[in-house]
Design a binder for these strands. Sequence first.
DNA 1: CCGTGATACCTCGATTGCGAGGTATGGTCT
DNA 2: AGACCATACCTCGCAATCGAGGTATCACGG
Lengths: 178, 178
Amino acid sequence: MLKLAILGFLYDRPLHGYQLRRHLAALTGHVRPISDGTLYPAIKRLEADGLLVRETEPGTAAAPRHTLHLTGAGRTALLDQLREPEPLDISDENRWFTLLAFLRQLDDPAAQAVVLRRRLAFLAEPASFFYDGDRPLGAEEFADPFRRGLLLIARATSEAELAWLHATLAELEGALTD
Amino acid sequence: MLKLAILGFLYDRPLHGYQLRRHLAALTGHVRPISDGTLYPAIKRLEADGLLVRETEPGTAAAPRHTLHLTGAGRTALLDQLREPEPLDISDENRWFTLLAFLRQLDDPAAQAVVLRRRLAFLAEPASFFYDGDRPLGAEEFADPFRRGLLLIARATSEAELAWLHATLAELEGALTD
DNA sequence: CCGTGATACCTCGATTGCGAGGTATGGTCT
DNA sequence: AGACCATACCTCGCAATCGAGGTATCACGG
């Protein structure tokens, strides 16, 4: 997840760790900045895998800045992850939204394929939540306002996404048949 | 997260591990069942902490079933986590939704306090996402349909939740002033 | 001139989670 | 009889993440 996001941001332009942290904070909702203890080891992992290189700028600011650049392997790794041939797990919202943030890096047919897979996984999703014994409960059966809230919010999100999926697929269809 | 969910489900009734797994799968969206390698160690942790006890039913089925019961400490631990005095981090959706699923176990004033804190955190959330250099970008500035989608979906979710928050607070207010 | 906060980076231990493997039993289908 | 699946539980090692700590430099206000 973090790996995907780091590669995605660096694809646009080289950044140093601190800028990267700000970008990541924005992506995750502006509230939970990825902690340093998560970010810097992740950068090291990517460096060890040869997906990025650091260029040290001495004397620029207080601490020695390390500007991070994607390597060719890094760019390939990002595009591979975006294309992701396996079916897209709907319950992994974080992964999907991160993917969405960088999907424009793919060409139209590849992006379309990803969006189509998402719609497929989406439509296959069973709508039930919670059980009474072994019987799944429908949304209307909840006396509990909190669980009802959970379902209402989940539904609103689903509907918004489905609407967007359709609009975007139509748009891509248009672009591809021109 | 898992801990909260396990305590929450066992609060209603004792279950054995397999049933628990089904409940958890439903909560996480019916698609990504918590893996065994996650669930059973989590149960052991809770047992070691004295929050639950297992009662073995021999000969019931194929394998020896362990019916899991919350202890008094387990019930207290759940209620404490639900009350959670620290401000509720909005970006941690999973935690919030799990909490919501079991919030009815609190009495009305305590639940109201939690919902109020959520609304507070919610209204304090800055609406911007992504940067161009150091300048945060508004929703309308995106030529990229994928990032626009991200924002559209996030907004729909926010609005649905805010509407629910208001409705529920009004409801609780009514119940408390009667 | 001293404290505070922002910038910038790093490490360590502990926890959490996953995937892949394993062990059984009992029922159903062929 | 054999294959196969669902039930039911378990362990191991690996990877990711967090939280709390640390080290600097520079800018600004009092």
